[in-house]
């Protein structure tokens, strides 16, 4: 259950995408999402799909991992698809029964929405699978650093994010341990009515919160002991470099977006 959560997990590797600059990867992901939303007909959607498939292959992360990250959102996909199918008006009625009318437009919209959600999840998974979380927050800090002009504490925000990401695996592990300990005392999480199940979580939540506070205090002490002051005077151990391949990747994606726009204009929009 809890171990199925894979977003935010790094998959060790040495592929082309692993080696791209983290800032480039964030920009690429933003471009990707823009591209996904710009698709107006099936040809441009197809082109986007090709981009996704190529990126997945280039990332050298097993397809199984991507399927795993899709698993938890399948219900959402189905739910939105069904809603879209039923509530999109249109002329071309395919099937009508009682109050339910299926139209060709409805089906198209549903398909587009489903495809968009799936593609967005996959593209953000590519980013998190191939980038170490700390690099990710470093990159976000760099990308947001212009905001410092407006007195926004970008560094502190990025540090908070780094720490939060850093502790996700720790928390998951901790939940596992506490769950096991309570199960060993006969706690039952699998049966019973909804209310009972919610109550059954209390023996996990309380120790978890207590130990999170303890951990936070310890961490703060440890950072103080190492004279952490935050702010602008800090340098980086790993300098980020924007190289040729980063530019090329960005260029390729810009061309991709141009392609999507062209296809949209040439063949008209269906959505």
């Amino acid at each position: 259950m809890i171990s199925d959560i894979t977003i935010g997990q790094y998959y060790k590797g040495n592929s082309f995408i692993h080696k791209l600059d983290a800032r480039a990867k964030i920009l690429l992901t933003v471009l990707f999402i823009a591209m996904i939303f710009m698709c107006k007909n099936f040809l441009s959607l197809g082109l986007t799909f090709v981009f996704v498939v190529l990126s997945v292959l280039l990332s050298a992360v097993p397809v199984k991992m991507y399927l795993k990250s899709l698993k938890p959102i399948i219900p959402i996909v189905i739910f939105t698809a069904v809603l879209n199918m039923l509530y999109t008006g249109g002329e071309t009625v395919l099937y009508s029964f009682w109050k339910i009318t299926l139209t060709a437009e409805g089906l198209t919209t549903a398909a587009f929405f489903a495809a968009r959600i799936v593609l967005i999840i996959i593209s953000s998974s590519i980013l998190t699978y191939t980038t170490v979380p700390t690099m990710l927050t470093d990159a976000i800090e760099k990308l947001l650093s212009p905001l410092k002009v407006f007195k926004i504490p970008v560094h502190s925000l990025a540090m908070m994010m780094t720490l939060a990401l850093r502790f996700i695996p720790t928390l998951i592990e901790e939940i596992g341990k506490i769950t096991n300990a309570q199960k060993a005392r006969g706690a039952d999480f699998e049966s019973g009515k909804l209310l009972q199940r919610i109550k059954a979580i209390i023996p996990i939540i309380i120790p978890l919160v207590v130990s999170s506070f303890r951990r936070a205090a310890e961490l703060a002490d440890a950072m103080n002991c190492r004279c952490y002051t935050g702010g602008n005077t800090r340098t980086r151990m790993k300098q980020m470099k924007f190289c040729f391949k980063d530019f090329v990747s960005l260029l390729v994606f810009c061309i991709g977006i141009a392609g999507v726009v062209l296809l949209n204009i040439k063949f008209g929009a269906v959505i």
């Binding site: 506490i178 300990a181 060993a184 005392r185 006969g186 039952d188």
Partner: peptide
């Protein structure tokens, strides 16, 4: 399996973190 857990009682490493 829960009945087994009552017959085989396990107390984990650092059990103090299970108190609630």
């Amino acid at each position: 399996i829960r009945k087994v857990r009552f017959r085989v009682g396990v107390c984990f490493q650092y059990p103090e973190y299970q108190l609630f």
